[in-house]
């Protein structure tokens, strides 16, 4: 009898705890939504009430309106929003993908093979501290202002973290795991493949995330300096035409796409590193 009471008491506690936790999560989401809405509202009001000069700031409604217009209208920068997004995506994905495809294997090989490390490292150490945007003038001379030129700049900004993190990641492989494979008679390459690479994945993903952030921000800088289309270019035109709404639209779209990429990357990461979270 006593036990039963106790048991149901415990059951209630668990239920209640679960409900509380759920309620808490709901509250937190609501708070975030409230936060965003009040920010937008305050922004809208401060523009409508002309607390700030309309020359400097467009209201959220204006930006939304422009968004719809820019879907089909190419003025004033000469491209519709879709064309600008496409141009930016083309550049950033080319540069970023190349950076991952070259940087990650390079870092892994440098981290694993001493000879390779000695061969590449001196060059890499010189190149590494150069800010990617400082390549721009030279790149323009070499490659003009086309896709290749900008992709190259993006590539550089994304390449460095890919190399460094892959290198560090594979260097941190736990020695006993290497010895497990070694005592099974595995060759150095097999150990690299079966032990080193899986061990490095956490750091590799961190590197790829940093690379993505870099790629996206460098892209905008590159387009602002030399381009005829793209989101960075659109922002620059917004400045030239004194159109804050265009600038803000550009910024917002850049933010949204960046967020989209981050979440795609998170999905890929949880596929590869899912074992950590179970």
């Amino acid at each position: 009898m006593n036990g039963k009471v106790k048991e149901s008491g415990l059951g209630l506690d668990v239920e209640e705890f679960k409900r509380k936790k759920q309620k808490n999560a709901y509250m937190m989401t609501m708070l975030s939504v409230v936060g965003i809405l009040s920010f937008l509202l305050l922004w809208q009001i401060s523009v409508s009430m002309e607390w700030v000069n309309q020359k400097f700031l467009a209201s959220p409604m204006q930006v939304l309106n422009l968004f719809l217009v820019k879907l089909t209208d190419a003025s004033p920068d000469g491209n519709t929003l879709g064309m600008n997004v496409l141009a930016s995506l083309q550049v950033s994905l080319t540069g970023f993908t190349l950076a991952v495809c070259i940087g990650v294997p390079l870092g892994l090989l440098m981290g694993w093979y001493r000879g390779f490390d000695s061969l590449i490292r001196p060059i890499f150490e010189v190149v590494r501290p150069i800010p990617p945007v400082s390549w721009i003038p030279l790149i323009i001379v070499w490659l003009g202002i086309g896709l290749q030129a900008k992709a190259f700049i993006v590539f550089f900004s994304a390449f460095v973290p890919c190399v460094i993190n892959s290198y560090t990641g594979i260097r941190q492989t736990v020695p006993v795991l290497i010895n497990v494979a070694k005592t099974c008679g595995a060759s150095n390459f097999t150990i690299f493949w079966k032990i080193g690479i899986p061990s490095s994945m956490t750091m590799v993903f961190t590197g790829i995330k940093v690379a993505l952030g870099n790629a996206w921000s460098t892209l905008v800088a590159a387009e602002m300096l030399a381009a005829s289309a793209g989101l960075g270019y659109m922002i620059l035109m917004g400045r030239q035409f004194a159109r804050p709404d265009i600038i803000i639209l550009g910024i917002t779209v850049i933010g949204a796409i960046g967020m989209l990429f981050s979440s795609l990357l998170n999905i890929a990461e949880s596929k590869v590193l899912g074992w950590k979270k179970v």
Binding site: V176, N179, V180, G185
Partner: peptide, 30 residues
């Protein structure tokens, strides 16, 4: 590489990214 030996190490040496079953298969697959 030549001899069929197996080593149980003193420190934990299961491969964290493989399930129990895949850990057991690991050496045999190598």
């Amino acid at each position: 590489k030549k001899h069929n030996l197996a080593f149980v190490f003193q420190e934990p040496s299961s491969l964290p990214w493989l399930t129990v079953e895949k850990n057991l298969r690991f050496g045999l697959e190598l």
